[in-house]
Amino acid sequence: MMLGSETRDIFYNGLWKQNPGIIQLLGLCPLLAVSNTVVNALALGLATTLVMALSNGSVALIRNFIPNALRIPTFVLLIAVLVTIVTLVIQAYAQPLYLVLGIFLPLITTNCIVLARVEAFASKQPTVNSILDGIAMGLGITAVLVTLGALREVIGKGTLFSGFDLALGDFARNWTVTVFPDYPGFLLAILPPGAFFGLGLLIALRNALQSRKA
């Protein structure tokens, strides 16, 4: 299947040009809080992607029936329902992961990137495009989350992919890659300041690449 130019634009916007994590800087709270290991980052990123695809799609479907004055409460209500479903599914099938991600799963409801895409895109666009936009933006934030998670995990603990068994069960127990053996650990990278330093460096890197291209 050839990708239409419209679809390509949607993905280019979500993953690079308007990346929610490093360009729009929306939804930073969970981004900074949960990016301490790759598995946490990936899990929250995919959960957010799922919620964004579903919420964009459902809002686009009913966009012509929502009274303009009541649109924000309607969106929030819809998003909250979807988040509840995703949270309960994760709690049922990946209980350890649910315990690790904790409050940040229900808080996807208040993640402003979800509401921003619903308001800016899905309420004005056809359903299929909206779902694609939700997926593209979600993958964009997942990419930033995972990069930041990998950075913080390697620098902070000297490992990669530790704890994947939380998400996937026992067969992933041996996936942990020890990058630096006998690493003393660099606590700052795991603590919240490490997230700010890491995100700042990623934004700087992105800007440097952009200005080199221009």
Binding site: P184, G185, F186, L187, L188, A189, L191, P193
Partner: peptide, 10 residues
């Protein structure tokens, strides 16, 4: 501060 927070034992 970075050192005392990151490497308290050392």
């Amino acid at each position: 501060a970075v050192l005392i927070v990151s490497f308290p034992a050392q």
